[in-house]
Amino acid sequence: MASYDQTRNRLETYFDRTAAKTWEALTSDAPVSKIRQTVREGRDTMRAAMLAQLPDDLNGARVLDAGCGAGPMSFELAKRGADVLAVDISPSLLDVARARTPDTLKSQIRFTAGDMLDPDYGSFDYVIAMDSLIHYRADDIANALAKLAPRTREKLVFTIAPKTPFLTAFWLMGQAFPRKDRSPQIVPHSETGLAKAMKAAKISDQPRKVTRVSRGFYISQAMEVAV
Rank of each mutant, 00 (worst) to 15 (best):
E154G: 01
D88F: 06
S28G: 09
L93P: 01
V39C: 07
I186L: 14
L77Q: 01
R212F: 00
I128E: 04
S92T: 06
D118V: 11
R137P: 01
S74W: 07
A149G: 07
K196S: 13
D29S: 15
F15A: 06
F217E: 15
G71L: 12
I160T: 12
P119W: 05
M223I: 04
K196H: 10
T104V: 10
T27V: 00
E12G: 11
C68F: 08
D56N: 15
A78L: 06
G174I: 06
A149R: 15
S107T: 13
A66Q: 04
A149M: 14
S92Y: 00
A197G: 05
R182N: 13
R182K: 09
A169Q: 15
P207C: 05
S3N: 00
I141H: 05
V39Y: 10
A142S: 03
Y136C: 02
E154M: 10
S90K: 13
D95I: 01
E24G: 11
A30M: 07
I35M: 07
Q175T: 02
D131F: 02
D181K: 14
T104S: 13
A176Y: 04
Q53K: 06
A129M: 08
A82R: 01
L77D: 01
I35W: 03
A52K: 12
R80I: 05
G122K: 08
F15W: 13
D125M: 07
